[in-house]
Design a protein around this nucleic acid. Structure first.
Lengths: 105, 105
DNA sequence: TTGACAAGACACCATTTGGTGTCATATTGT
DNA sequence: ACAATATGACACCAAATGGTGTCTTGTCAA
């Protein structure tokens, strides 16, 4: 798991385990792997791989603290998805709400 | 390609070809397969498979017209993704903009 | 009626994905 | 010093993914 591939943010959020990881990390704290592990019905190695995918998409960063590796969320790449979605927003929102949104930007 | 699986909308939008298909179909018209084909560097079968995935995620519907199958976008499932993202919006937007958004709903 | 066109159905293939288990190594607490 | 902890690094595996090509069937147009 050495080579740092580039990874698409859309791929990164395609897996439900990874979305759950994002959610767990979203309270601005950082968590070591073993703390995250308990939330999933799979082994440590699998969770670690999912975190690697999130790292490749730059959705999480990690730092070594003692014998543990602490992970932290970086939500910025999610904005790309939201921007993509905003184009289709008009289909399910009223036109006035859409206009509001456009004016905000 | 008979059996209609259930398919996650997050999986459906994970592939760039499928996102491009969604974009092509987004002007409310319907397009037959052979018209969509020309936009991609792959064969008919591959594009057809991607459309099947989009159908499984209920992002497109299709109807037979003469000898062609016409595809139409159904953007509704994308709202699920936007709702999921809205939770993380606060990280890159000012709090006031977020409040605005909450008030709209 | 015959030939060209559009698409479905299917077999096939290489690569990726999402898991497993095991071994090695660094760190901590007693 | 030593045992337990936390993790990395691999090798391995089944199934899914994203392509290909071919054969068949239905439809349209000359």
């Amino acid at each position: 798991m050495n080579q740092t591939r580039e990874r698409d943010v859309y791929e990164a959020i395609a897996d439900p385990t990874r979305r759950e990881l994002i959610h767990l990390l979203s309270d601005e704290e950082e968590f070591p792997l073993h703390a995250l592990m308990g939330h999933f019905p799979m082994g440590r190695t699998a969770v670690s791989k999912h975190l690697t995918v999130l790292k490749e998409a730059k959705l999480v960063s990690d730092r070594r603290v003692g014998r543990e590796t602490r992970y932290r969320l970086n939500p910025a790449p999610l904005k790309q998805v939201q921007d993509w979605l905003s184009y289709y927003e008009k289909f399910w929102q009223g036109k006035i709400a859409t206009l509001n949104r456009l004016l905000e930007e």
